[in-house]
Structure formats: structure tokens, C-alpha cells
Amino acid sequence: MEKDETLDCKGLMCPMPIVKLAKKMKEMQVGKVVELISDDPGSKEDVPAWAQRTGNEVVEMKQDGKIFTFYVKKKQA
């Protein structure tokens, strides 16, 4: 999966991955993709919920054991 930025949130728990994702997306341009890595089990629901609510898109989600990797595309300015 192509990405423009990486946000490693391993070790962080709710709400930090979401707060960091929102901050990162604010700095990014529309159309860019951030790779978010998280081991917070809540992220599985939280990241898609954040994207739905803010009008952005989770292009892909992978799970490897306890590690979730999301590719989130910025769609809203």
C-alpha cells in the first residue's frame, strides 16, 4: 500500500492514536495517505469511526496479531 506519512502509535492507548491521527491529517494535503500503526485494540473500531465522522477514508486495514495497520486517505480539507 502506498503511503506518504507514517504514524507509529504502538504503546499508546485511546484517545492518543486518534488525537495524533487528527493532528497529522491537519498537516497533510488532500489525497495523501498516512499509515497508522497501533496496538490499541480499540483502534479497530475507533479509526474507521474517526474517518467516517470526519469524511476521510480508511483505504485499507491489516491486522497482524495485536498490531493494526491502517491506511487513511485525507479527503477533506
Partner: peptide, 8 residues
Amino acid sequence: NTAASMGM
């Protein structure tokens, strides 16, 4: 802080 991060 979560709500504000979701644009609320």
C-alpha cells in the same frame, strides 16, 4: 479531546 479530534 477525542470529540475535538473528530471535528466536533
